[in-house]
Simulated scan of single mutants.
Amino acid sequence: MFKSKKAKIALFSGLGVASVALVGGALLFSNALGGSGSAGEDFTLPMTYRVVQEGSIASSTLLTGTVAAGEEQFVYYDPSKGDISEFYVEQGSQVEVGTALLRYDAYELQTALDSAVRGRDKIGRQIYDVQNGGQTLPTTGDPALDGEAAASAQRSIDLQLADLNDAYADAQAAVDKAWTAVNEATVASTVSGTVVEVNKSVSKSSTNSQTVIHIVNQNSLQVTGQLTEYDLANIKVDQEVKLSTKVYPEQTWTGKISYISNYPANDQTAVAVPGGGGSGGGAKYPFKVTLTSDIGDLKQGFTVNMEVVNTSKNILVPVTAVVYEDDKTFVWTLVDGKAKKVEVTLGNADALNQEVTKGLSVGDHVIVLPDFDLQEGQEVEADEEPAN
């Protein structure tokens, strides 16, 4: 089918309008970018520079741990001491070091102590009698015979006293042991804190250790966890951490790593896992974090996430400023308004900043995003960009 002449004219007219619109739009876009609209002219974005400063990059080390008490006491039932006759504290009680917590029935222990004291005192009286009772010896009138008899009697007394003194020492040891047993019938607190558990229904027939009283020092809360062998190389004692928990997502806490074990937990041994990476298999090393901020709403048993704070200071440049050529790295600097290419040695980096360990000094002007065709000594007009 053939179109009419009128239809053809309308079609060509429409194409002409569209062509004019496209050309006009291109000219307007070119003028808006500051160009003259001449054909073949290249457009480049204006460059900026940043004054080099020292700073710290964000840490990439994230850890998890559990809130635990640094100071706590578990009192376990001791069936060898008999029945518990009295509890001196209740759940929620505040105690100090040395506060009496409970007492076992000490009747038999006290009886044993009394018996030991009597046995010791009896021996003491025998010693006194031998030392002070005196002894009469018959005389024969012969000085030699009488002297020999006296010497023999004295040796007998000395041996008797020696045996009695040994017996007295043994009796005193028995008294001390019985006295200790009586004192240990009363169990005292070894930490200051809050009584969080009192179990008065212990079973004498149970062979398992049964907690009778549990005391926690809430002011000693800390965070415990385990480092992988990969984290171990990057974490040091006294490094600061930021803590958060899903229970209170709007709150944060601060802490400091106070302990890192040199030995794997539970006698673990490292197991090489090909391609395992930092989250793969391997040994786990216990660590502890001491809280340096108010405990607030944190509770024992909470799971927390921790970001290790990087406090090391290094020269920082924008990651976009680094140019890679072969096996070397460079940045472009501005010196008296001209471009200068500087070889640098890099450290760690985060999403925004790159550490430079060699090649730059504080105060240097580094081009944030250099052109690919930038030349050594080329005059450059650039505005200062504030640091992040």
Rank of each mutant, 00 (worst) to 15 (best):
K358A: 11
L45W: 13
G119W: 01
G359I: 06
S60A: 14
E108C: 00
Q73N: 13
K3L: 12
V323Q: 15
N266C: 00
L374V: 15
P264D: 03
S115H: 00
V322Y: 12
E54Q: 15
P274A: 14
V335W: 06
G347M: 09
Q91P: 04
V202L: 04
F372V: 10
A58L: 12
K236F: 07
A68P: 00
A185L: 06
T292R: 09
D294C: 02
G16N: 05
L374E: 13
S189T: 05
L291E: 03
Q131F: 01
G301Q: 06
I157N: 10
S312K: 12
D327S: 15
A100R: 05
V273F: 06
V323T: 14
V368R: 07
I9P: 02
V52C: 07
V344C: 07
L374K: 12
L145G: 01
I257H: 10
A106Q: 05
E384G: 08
Y263C: 00
A387W: 05
F302Y: 15
K122W: 00
G359Y: 08
N219E: 11
A185T: 03
E385R: 14
V308T: 08
V309A: 05
Q251M: 07
A339T: 02
G296S: 10
E355W: 00
A68H: 01
S189H: 09
E90N: 14
L164V: 01
S201A: 11
E325V: 11
A7K: 12
G255F: 07
N353V: 07
S209R: 15
T44K: 14
E148R: 11
V317L: 09
T48I: 03
K177S: 13
A7V: 09
N266G: 02
T66P: 05
S19C: 09
H365R: 14
L113A: 01
F330Q: 09
L15V: 13
V23S: 12
A173I: 00
K284R: 15
L101E: 05
M306F: 07
I215D: 05
A321Q: 06
Y88H: 15
L45K: 13
S152W: 00
D294M: 03
D231M: 01
Y285D: 10
T252R: 11
A32G: 11
Y49I: 09
D163T: 08
T44N: 12
V366L: 12
G278L: 03
P386K: 10
S152Q: 10
F302E: 03
S19I: 06
A270H: 15
N199A: 08
F87H: 10
L159T: 10
V23Y: 14
L159N: 15
G124S: 08
D105G: 02
K81P: 03
S38V: 02
I215W: 04
Q94K: 12
G301E: 04
Q268V: 01
N314K: 15
V198H: 08
K299S: 13
K338A: 09
L33T: 06
P249R: 09
D267M: 02
N388E: 14
S4W: 02
Y104F: 07
L346E: 02
S261I: 01
A382R: 07
D129R: 05
L62S: 11
K328R: 13
Y230H: 09
F12C: 05
S152M: 07
